[in-house]
Computed example of a mutant assay.
Amino acid sequence: MKRILPAAAILCAALAVSCAGNREAEISESGLDRAKFRTVVDGKPTDLYILKNAAGMEVCLSNYGARIVSVWVPDRKGDMKDVVLGFDSIGAYLAARNNMGASIGRYAGRIAHGKAVIDGKEYEFPVNNNGHSMHSGPDGFHTRVFDAVQKSPSQVAFSYRAADGECGYPGNFDVTVTYTLTDDNAVDILYEGTTDKTTIVNMTNHSFFNLDGDPNRLNTEYVVWIDADRFAPIDSTCLTTGELVPVEGTPMDFRTPAAIGARMGEENDQLRYGGGYDQTWALNAPGDAGRPCASMYSPHSGIRLDVYTTEPALQFYAGGSLNGTVTGKKGIVYNRYCAACLESQKFPDSANKPQWPSSVLRPGETFTSRCIYKFSVEE
């Protein structure tokens, strides 16, 4: 359980937080009240950090989970829209304990049966999804308070030390997640980390994108493109099988842009297991962050999202498990297929599948990963 301190302690801690001159903006352009994000959780102050660029775009973030809270971009009419799901206060995030917008770690995705062998020793991790460990269990990085330094009006860095043994993982892992909002409307996310003991690391951002700025509108008309000839099939528990199979002739083929809902009704085991799309694609240009690996576009709003990454894989999740039990910003209920995720990462369960790119990090090495979410408008 997260421990929230009395009001006097909250005030003192909040006054001690450095926001590099950003205190004057108490209400964000997207309508978020910073006061509702200021408290103390597990002895550490939380706050809302506001990034702006010369083009008028705004991104709001919280150091609780080093997460994106809002992304404020123009649609084709020039009207500004908040295109990610989330909550209006830190209290709502604490109550929900979900991963919306969060930096996922120490290991994103599923690890089979919550077990992996690292340097000849078996480690066990919290099991929380169909008998597997998902996103490092219920107490992963999405529930941790990061230290924050706002370096400029367009950049903030969140840092955290995951202690040796936290969530079962070996090694003290020191990680920094730096968000930079560029003047060409891109959210550039850089992960950097080191360890003092051999461990495994796989990090991603878990933003749920609704490109209409209206979660009451479903994503089934969004047009998706993924630069991948192969994908990683899952079994009935949503665990990767270890294969990489061609997308050719399957609903997983997004090499030609297609609407999310165009083939979700087909009789297909992968769609049935994932409740729609919830698979990993093997990118055709792994490691190349200079070219887009995927895109998603809303014909209704005209907002387009392009994804760039240094990672070898992309998880595309169409929001099939959203079920109307969560009420988010502005009192809107989040129903099935109201948003979608594009998560750059290593292959899930790669710790147990040596045929895939390694997720092992050793002392003296630096874990680095980069994901860029770039927004634009199509007429």
Rank of each mutant, 00 (worst) to 15 (best):
G261H: 06
Q270R: 02
A54Q: 14
A66L: 04
Y273W: 12
D147P: 00
M264H: 07
H206I: 07
H132E: 00
R272G: 02
N335H: 13
H142Y: 12
K36N: 12
D235M: 01
N99F: 13
A20D: 08
T368P: 01
R38G: 01
N268Q: 07
T240I: 14
A35T: 12
D174R: 00
M1I: 13
V69L: 10
D306L: 02
M264F: 08
D75C: 06
V40C: 10
Q315I: 12
E248Q: 13
G168R: 07
I189N: 08
C293N: 01
E58P: 07
D188T: 12
F158H: 11
T309H: 08
F125V: 05
S207I: 00
L283F: 03
F125E: 03
D42C: 11
S321F: 14
D235A: 01
C60E: 12
H113N: 14
V69D: 09
T198C: 01
A7R: 15
L314C: 07
A55D: 12
E378Q: 13
T198P: 00
Y222G: 01
I50C: 14
K121H: 13
A228D: 04
G242Q: 09
K329I: 11
N205W: 05
N205G: 13
V59E: 06
V71A: 12
Q345K: 07
T199Q: 05
D164A: 07
I111T: 15
R263E: 08
E267P: 04
S369G: 14
G105S: 10
Y277L: 01
F347C: 04
F158T: 09
N335E: 14
V149M: 13
F125Y: 14
W281M: 01
A14H: 15
E192A: 13
Y64E: 10
N22Y: 11
W72R: 10
E122D: 05
D184P: 04
N172C: 03
S154H: 15
D214M: 04
D306S: 14
R23L: 07
S344L: 03
T237M: 00
T199G: 01
H113F: 03
T220V: 13
D184H: 10
R106A: 09
S344E: 09
N98W: 09
L342R: 09
G290D: 07
K81M: 03
P170H: 08
A9M: 13
K44I: 13
A54L: 12
C293K: 11
G43H: 04
T180R: 15
C60N: 13
A55T: 14
A7M: 11
N202T: 12
W356E: 06
E24W: 15
K330F: 00
A294N: 06
A162H: 02
G91C: 02
N219R: 11
R106G: 09
W225D: 01
R23H: 04
R336D: 02
R336S: 14
E24N: 08
E29H: 05
M57R: 14
